[in-house]
Amino acid sequence: MGPMIVEFGLGTSLRRGDYTQAAERAVRAALWRNSINLAEYMGVAKEDMVIEVRIGCVQPDAVEVDVLAAAFPYGQTSFVVEKGGLDVVRPEGTGNPTVMAQAALIVSVDASERPLEAT
């Protein structure tokens, strides 16, 4: 079982400086702007998809992973939150920065038990 699909998303928190919100928006962008129908194609249950979620943002420790996990309707998820993304300081130099986070969803399935189709 190896990676079969990689989906990407970008999320922002424009005013609140909320790293979890930006990361959740990045995850949702990767999920809902793209159609992940790998399970159906491979003949396995959606719940059997293994999804490695990698998040990049300036303050990785500020991301609440349990909030991100709730965004997934199915699949077995794991999370890595690391330094990346971008904080954009406001022109006036005060207040929260605009936070940008990136998400990569690396999707795998174990299709070894899938019966071969007759050709």
Rank of each mutant, 00 (worst) to 15 (best):
G9S: 09
M49A: 13
E52N: 09
A45W: 01
E82Y: 02
T98M: 15
E64S: 06
I106H: 06
G43K: 00
K46Q: 14
V58L: 13
G56Y: 01
A39T: 04
P3L: 08
L116E: 14
V67L: 10
A70H: 12
I106L: 12
A104E: 15
P115D: 13
D87I: 00
T12I: 14
L31P: 04
Y19C: 07
V107G: 02
V50R: 06
D110Q: 03
A39C: 09
L116V: 10
G95D: 11
G17R: 03
A22P: 06
T98P: 03
G84A: 14
P3R: 06
E92P: 02
T94W: 10
V88Y: 01
T12H: 06
E24S: 11
A70P: 05
K83I: 11
M42Y: 02
E40H: 05
T98F: 07
E64C: 02
Y41S: 11
G9R: 06
G93N: 08
I51G: 02
C57T: 12
V67E: 14
R16E: 15
L14F: 03
A26W: 03
G43C: 07
A45G: 10
G17L: 04
G43M: 05
E92L: 13
T119C: 09
G85V: 01
R54I: 14
G75Y: 04
A62V: 00
A39F: 04
A22H: 01
A111M: 01
A69N: 13
G2D: 12
V109K: 00
A104N: 07
E47D: 15
V6Y: 03
I55M: 12
P97H: 06
E92Q: 14
L68Q: 05
A69C: 05
W32T: 03
K46L: 14
R15G: 00
I36K: 00
V27A: 06
K46S: 13
A70S: 15
Q76E: 13
G56Q: 11
K83T: 14
T77H: 07
A23Q: 07
V88I: 15
G11I: 06
E24I: 06
Q102P: 01
A101H: 08
A70Y: 12
G9N: 07
V58N: 09
L10V: 15
V99K: 08
G95C: 08
V107T: 10
V6D: 09
Y74M: 10
A104W: 05
W32D: 10
E92D: 15
P97F: 04
V27D: 05
V109D: 02
E82G: 13
L116N: 10
N96T: 05
I5C: 00
E64Y: 07
A70M: 12
A62M: 12
A111Q: 01
G95Q: 08
E64H: 09
A70R: 14
R33C: 07
V6H: 03
V89I: 08
Y41L: 14
R16N: 10
V63A: 10
G9I: 08
V81S: 13
F72S: 04
V80E: 15
I55T: 11
